[in-house]
Design a protein around this nucleic acid. Structure first.
Lengths: 140, 140
DNA sequence: TGCTATAGGGATAATTTTATCCCATGGCCG
DNA sequence: CGGCCATGGGATAAAATTATCCCTATAGCA
């Protein structure tokens, strides 16, 4: 397993939180699981941009950090379900805030981010499903 | 300048927000500036773990993303001050929440993070100054 | 038998992010 | 003159994160 060469700086709450949320899909994973999309295969379908491998890794990290609980059903083919722990749930305030802020400022943000020379392309519509599920029949 | 090879996925609010906050020091920078620590040299002193170069880069990105405003005083030696824009201020809800969550769960988090094999060492006390300044005379 | 679904993880390449180092500006001070 | 201050940024090395590819296991179905 990979070993850090530069020590982590986790002095203020900000950095602690950042460390827990640090991963391309971690907020999305927590979000998905909070919405009861809890089996790895379901999550994978929900996040087409993500690789199975990365999801495995990040789910594992979230579990190791105590945000998720993993339940393995002794079946075949295997069945696994993740759920938020208490502290994991408490993180949802932040995730929700991020989601809302991003949505509220979508137009502005898409603009400034697309203007960024580091951005070559911008894909949309992936997590759209989230909202479709949260507000069914709205635009579907 | 570096050009992305893999396009950004900024479909849901979560990813938009994540993109804006994506950078080792960005939350800390916004936090510092919100507390009126607004000159690059001051910020650098506040965050000993950060390189001058990285702060420059991340400040610039935050500015390009519209979160910060940069004011250059025509003096010598140069004087620069950053301030939060309106949308930048609105981000502070999230930053504050992250800070509070991290602090509230500090003990638990330090534990699980230190247990992580990827963590070799954990440094503390850097941003402590934040709190000292926010609640002066408490432990100083 | 061959293929599907479900989940997990090793090895290694590719990509992105940070760290290091170095140079430039231009007054002021000893 | 030589060095300091404050700020900015190029070039390149190092580190960290993700992406790709491949292999495991087993029940069920055509």
């Amino acid at each position: 397993m990979y070993e850090r060469k530069i020590s982590l700086a986790i002095d203020c709450g900000l950095h602690l939180t950042k460390e827990v949320l640090n991963g391309k899909w971690k907020p999305a994973l927590l979000n998905a699981i909070s919405m009861d999309i809890k089996r790895p295969s379901e999550i994978l379908r929900l996040l087409p941009g993500a690789t199975r491998r990365v999801l495995n890794v990040q789910l594992k990290e979230l579990e190791e950090h105590g945000m998720l609980e993993k339940r393995i059903y002794p079946q075949l083919p295997p069945k696994v379900e993740y759920s938020l722990t208490e502290i994991g749930w408490s993180l949802m305030h932040i995730i929700d805030a991020m989601n809302q802020w991003g949505d509220a400022n979508r137009q502005f943000l898409e603009n400034v981010i697309a203007r960024d020379p580091k951005t070559t392309q911008v894909s949309k519509s992936v997590c759209q499903m989230y909202r479709d599920m949260a507000a069914p029949g709205k635009q579907a």
